[in-house]
Design a protein around this nucleic acid. Structure first.
Length: 587
DNA sequence: GCCGTTTTCGGCCCGACTGTTTTCAGTCG
């Protein structure tokens, strides 16, 4: 069961409780757990299997017990009991914008509908508008909501959302009415997948700023336009929300809409304890005279730094704002100094167009093109990690000849370009944990990335043994895209991380954070565990074309979300230190 | 139902918008 499915189930239970008039905080607890599960970067079912459900904030004794029942039996008796008290149809229409629990119940009970298409029919026929408490406008809003649901394609991959938003922000900044502009929400926090694109700007001329936004060339049509916000649909069909504020309270706005929800809830709790109240407009002081409460504005917060300072804590980078200990760390002045994109000195997983007779997956660019682009990025070194040749079709001698031919080209570039190309390979970890290329050949390479590319469905025990065996090979330096996940299409495989960490530590192996948009693998939560255990990481793009080397920032974002510092990441080392670390002979 | 260097009991985030009401409940982010 996916995290999204679990979250939806918990929201249904919360909705049922809402209609049944259950304790408000109990309802909130279910919603909180649902949010937390939906945004978790590990699969909750996997966490359950390794007894780590406690890692999910908002999941306590009761919900944990229910989830265990869900995973074991496929259903939860208690949930069925609660939801069984209400018409089934209401749960079908819950996800539609504008329909909350009470409206859903009212509609399902009055009209006896059982699906979204039923609902659509009643809206079109005019029956919906006659439900007590609803009206013509609500019925039209619901129709619009139904259309939106069918149009919605789900969450976008981070790099896609980032580049969309980046184009808009860049264009906006050309307007003299826009002083600053940033994306908000999960995009600003650099979560692996992003729901909506929201952008905020500071301005001294609200109307001018809004106008600059709706006139952008990317805009197909304007959905909504007010004094402080506008909503548009882009030519590619994506909706973008835009909001503006004056420079003196831009920090408060940014902070509020960057979230995460859990982070902000925790902050408000701390604020309350200090007699403060937080909002998108700034921080106010709550005072009590007799039984009367009054709130006086304390600070509008020009910057987020000011906002966090008033709350008595250090500035928290957006990537860390998930309420997983960052607030406590910020209060104790113990936040990590997380790695920055500028710290990266090289890319350790790049594919070239040199044909070492792989049957597939060649890079597009030549060694010299890759070298040139790496120099433009300010790197000191890159590892040419082409796939190994198909094993069945080649003898070891043939493979060695191919690699020697490539090495000659690498050496030529190294002597002329002012950048170090490493003679590397991405070698398959075969189903039994042996490698696709013999040790004699691997021994002659500068750096070996070993990756799983087949037999993903092995169980935890076999997969763990397989990867451990590969890591124990003295020629292997890095475990490539360690979970094998492809976001949206393939779950990462099951593996015993504690054992992987142990062998990485004792044998000095590094785990890769692969910045390929569909991978972002290691996932940030596992990065965090690895960092806590002192495991070394590398951040690589797995680029198959020069342009894809620019994806490095997304790998860095994953590292930041995993609290990694520069010292945790080996490709932050200068060439001198890097070559010493991996004992690479200078050529 | 969750959670805790003030608490294992007693708290639990905030404000805007909207439609259908005649003063507010429901939804959303």
């Amino acid at each position: 069961m996916t995290n999204l499915e679990i979250a939806r189930l918990l929201r249904k239970v919360a909705a049922a409780y809402t209609v049944l008039g259950e304790n408000f905080f109990k309802i909130q607890a279910y919603e909180k757990a649902a949010d937390s599960i939906e945004h978790a970067t590990s699969e909750v079912e996997d966490l359950f299997e390794v007894g780590k459900l406690d890692m999910i904030p908002g999941v306590g004794e009761h919900i944990k017990k229910y989830l265990a029942e869900l995973f074991k039996k496929g259903k939860v008796v208690h949930f069925d009991l609660v939801m069984g008290k209400l018409p089934k149809g209401m749960f079908e229409i819950l996800g539609i914008p504008g329909i909350g629990p009470k409206t859903a119940y009212k509609i399902a009970k009055t009209l006896g509908i059982s699906s979204i298409s039923d609902l659509k029919d009643t809206a079109v026929s005019g029956k919906l508008a006659k439900v007590p408490g609803l009206g013509g406008k609500t019925a039209r809003e619901i129709l619009k909501g139904i259309e939106e649901v069918s149009r919605r394609k789900g969450r976008m991959l981070l790099p896609y959302a980032w580049s969309l938003a980046n184009d808009i922000v860049t264009a906006l900044k050309k307007s003299s009415d826009i002083l600053e502009a940033y994306p908000l929400g999960s995009l600003r926090r650099m979560v692996a997948t992003v729901g909506d694109i929201d952008i905020a700007a500071s301005t001294k001329n609200h109307a001018g700023a809004i106008n600059a936004f709706i006139k952008l060339p990317q805009v197909e049509r304007v959905v909504d336009k007010g004094e402080h916000k506008a909503t548009v649909v882009l030519k590619n069909g994506r909706q973008v929300d835009f909001m503006v504020t004056s420079p003196n309270r831009f920090g408060a706005l940014l902070q509020h809409f960057t979230g995460s929800k859990m982070h902000n809830i925790h902050l408000r709790k701390i604020a309350n304890e200090k007699g403060l109240s937080l909002s998108e407009y700034g921080i106010s002081k709550i005072s009590q005279v007799g039984d009367q409460f009054a709130s006086d504005f304390l600070a509008k917060c020009k910057s987020e730094e000011e906002f966090y300072k008033i709350l008595g804590m250090d500035y928290i980078p957006p990537e860390l704002r998930e309420d997983t200990g960052e607030i406590e760390a910020a209060i104790a002045h113990k936040l990590p100094k997380v790695v920055e994109p500028e710290d990266i000195k090289g890319d350790l997983h790049v594919h070239s167009s040199f044909d070492i007779e792989t049957s597939h997956d060649l890079g597009e660019n030549s060694l010299s093109e890759l070298a040139k682009h790496a120099k433009e990025l300010g790197y000191e070194y890159i590892a040419i990690a082409d796939h190994n040749p198909s094993v069945s079709g080649h003898t070891p001698v043939q493979i060695e000849r191919l690699l020697v031919r490539r090495l000659k080209l690498i050496e030529q570039i190294n002597s002329s370009r002012g950048i170090k190309l490493l003679n590397s390979i991405e070698v398959d970890i075969l189903a039994d944990g042996t490698l696709a290329i013999s040790d004699e050949i691997l021994l002659g390479l500068d750096l070996v990335v070993a990756s799983v590319h087949s037999s993903f469905n092995q169980n935890l025990e076999i997969m763990t043994k397989r990867v451990l065996r590969a890591l124990e090979n003295p020629n292997v330096d890095i475990l490539g895209h360690p979970t094998g996940r492809l976001i949206g299409s393939r779950e990462g495989f099951e593996i015993d991380w504690d054992k992987i960490f142990d062998v990485c530590k004792s044998k000095h192996k590094a785990l890769e954070i692969n910045a390929w948009p569909e991978r972002l693998d290691l996932p940030d939560t596992i990065v965090r565990e690895a960092v806590a255990k002192g495991i070394k990481l590398v951040i690589s793009t797995d680029a198959h074309a020069t342009k894809q080397m620019d994806n490095m920032r997304f790998g860095v974002a994953v590292a930041r979300r995993g609290w990694a510092e520069k010292t945790d990441v080996l490709n932050c080392l200068s060439w001198l230190d890097f070559s010493k670390y991996f004992r690479i002979q200078s050529r």
